[in-house]
């Protein structure tokens, strides 16, 4: 009996049948999905109640953070107003049509990775709701990752901080291109990513904004211009061809509540 069980187990593990594996995972996740939704809902309520109980101490800290954020946003806004004015003028001049809007599917995050081997979150919607593999996932804070596995009721999202996630990106200030690859988490638990293959002759500054370039070829590709994070450190190697920068992918910090899966989009910049 043990021999038969062992042979069956080895076959399941080592025979590469991706569709069968996905069906098996779909069955397991389908069974667990209602419980995960319920558990997630209860947990969020408990977390909200905890935050309310913490009271004024937390509010004062939040107020200080928001004041700092306001100063930064005002500085950015003044720059963006100029850029927007230039943009509008150029668009009218060249009669470009407005970029086609993306069809986005709002999803709630129902759970996180079970083993700690992957930086993933699970969404409460799947192929029945139109979610497909390799579709980009974004949130109001920027790029979250991409759909790695989609089952009828759930979708597993590989976060941009996972080493298996790669995104073509650019530094918006200097229009310098590179490849963003996840780098796990630092000792404080903050998710990290690294922008590689940056031309070493280009200047990269701490604080530069990194956005998607729209050049990713895998699956559906990532939409252009989605915020990924800010440059935290720059590493230059005089003997190498490239430099790389460490970035903090802001959208993956903390537990995500709601995200959007980009379901379909048209070719960008084409009329």
């Amino acid at each position: 009996m043990y021999a038969v069980a062992a042979v069956l187990l080895l076959a399941v593990v080592f025979v590469p049948l991706p569709s069968l594996t996905l069906k098996g995972k779909g069955a397991v996740r389908g069974v667990m999905a209602p419980a995960e939704r319920g558990f997630s809902s209860v947990w969020k309520r408990l977390a909200d109640a905890g935050a309310a109980i913490r009271g004024m101490g937390g509010a004062a800290e939040k107020n200080r953070d928001l004041s700092l954020e306001l100063v930064r946003v005002q500085a950015e806004l003044s720059q963006l107003c100029d850029a927007e004015a230039d943009n509008e003028r150029l668009r009218r001049a060249f009669e470009f049509s407005r970029q086609k809007s993306y069809t986005m599917i709002p999803c709630n995050v129902v759970s996180r990775n079970i083993s700690g081997w992957w930086s993933t979150v699970r969404l409460g919607k799947g192929t029945r709701d139109g979610i497909e593999e390799n579709r980009p996932v974004i949130s109001p804070d920027g790029l979250v990752g991409k759909v790695a596995e989609a089952t009828p009721l759930t979708a597993e999202v590989l976060l941009v901080s996972d080493p298996a996630c790669r995104v073509s990106a650019k530094i918006s200030r200097s229009n310098t291109f590179g490849l963003v690859r996840g780098a796990g988490a630092n000792l404080k638990g903050l998710p990290m990513a690294r922008m590689e293959f940056i031309d070493k002759d280009k200047e990269v500054r701490v604080g530069d904004e990194v956005v998607t370039s729209g050049l990713s070829s895998a699956g559906g590709g990532f939409p252009k211009g989605v915020h990924i994070g800010y440059v935290d450190k720059v590493h230059r190697d005089d003997s190498g061809l490239y430099q790389y920068a460490e970035i903090i992918p802001r959208a993956t910090v903390g537990l995500l509540d709601y995200v959007f899966v980009v379901a379909a989009h048209g070719p960008e910049g084409v009329k």
Partner: peptide
């Protein structure tokens, strides 16, 4: 089954 089914990647 739960551990591998809820995780990313292959069963194993």
């Amino acid at each position: 089954l739960l551990q591998d089914g809820l995780d990313l990647g292959v069963f194993g």
